[in-house]
Amino acid sequence: MVVHDRSYARWDGDRDKPVRGVWVIMDRGVSTGLAAIFKRKIFGQLLSFWAFGPFLFALGALYLAFYFRANVATYPEIAQGIEQSGILQLVSPTADNVWGYFLELQIWVCLILCVVVGAGLVAEDRRTNALEMYLSRPLSVWQYVLGKLGIIGFFLTLITVLPVCLLILVQAFLVGFEPGQTAELAGLFWRSIVAGTVFVAFLSVLVTAASALSKRARNASILWVGFLVMVEGLLRGNLQEAFLNPEVHLVSLHFNLSRCMAWILDNQVELARYPDMPVAWSAGILGGWTLLCLAVVLRRVRPVEIVA
């Protein structure tokens, strides 16, 4: 018979090591997020296919285009067909196409991920009174918030920044690190990281604020979708129709985000679409939204709820 020692033993570990609260929260949150995505296996698989499909398609197309181009003598017709179809221009990472069509495809997955993973980030902790448990540990409010932002940020980075960076690296390998093109791709690589970080950070802050405003993940999801429909659809559409003024686009978060990212990526094609509208306006609007969302989160993330 196994005899268990049920008495309490003291712990002799190191109590002075710094607490890596942000990483602990992120680590646990990512596992929980994956569990939420794959709670229904079919849904998880479909979402994964949707999230990584465009990347895998671009990767395959890029490789095949380069392969047939390199073996033009063996496959002259196919190589000519590829040149004429312009597929290489479409899938080769450039400032215009990588953060243009690729992001347009990915943004829907990002929004779904925000609902599945992001909506419950703070809301569920508020519902189960876990904030009191978190903040009675050696953890500051900021560490808690950064940990939560890190969870949704991780998933968004996984399906946006990471594939783009991989595509650029693959392109660099395929062109054989030619000095001129490598320098161009290196520039694009770093710009992509910065632009992607802006995109991921903004979306993360926005969805975390929506989550902090509610005590249930379901309500936060409704709030999140409702907010986007209102701002991106109704408000932008109606104002545009009423005023016929391009500056009306500034109410759209998507528009402002695209403008700022185009500026970071030095995407002149995108910037030239609205030459009279300074990027600083869009940056200011995004900054304002970010501050507002952070203020909401910090106001809601309290260990003690004070009822007036």
Partner: peptide
């Protein structure tokens, strides 16, 4: 880090087993 707290209200980390919740509390305490 030197203090433990058992709150009055029903409070729990969501979506965790008893073991996970206790392990997580330890991790959060460093």
């Amino acid at each position: 880090r030197r203090v433990g707290y058992m709150p009055e209200r029903d409070a729990a980390f969501p979506d965790m087993t008893g073991f996970q919740a206790t392990w997580y509390a330890g991790r959060l305490s460093g």
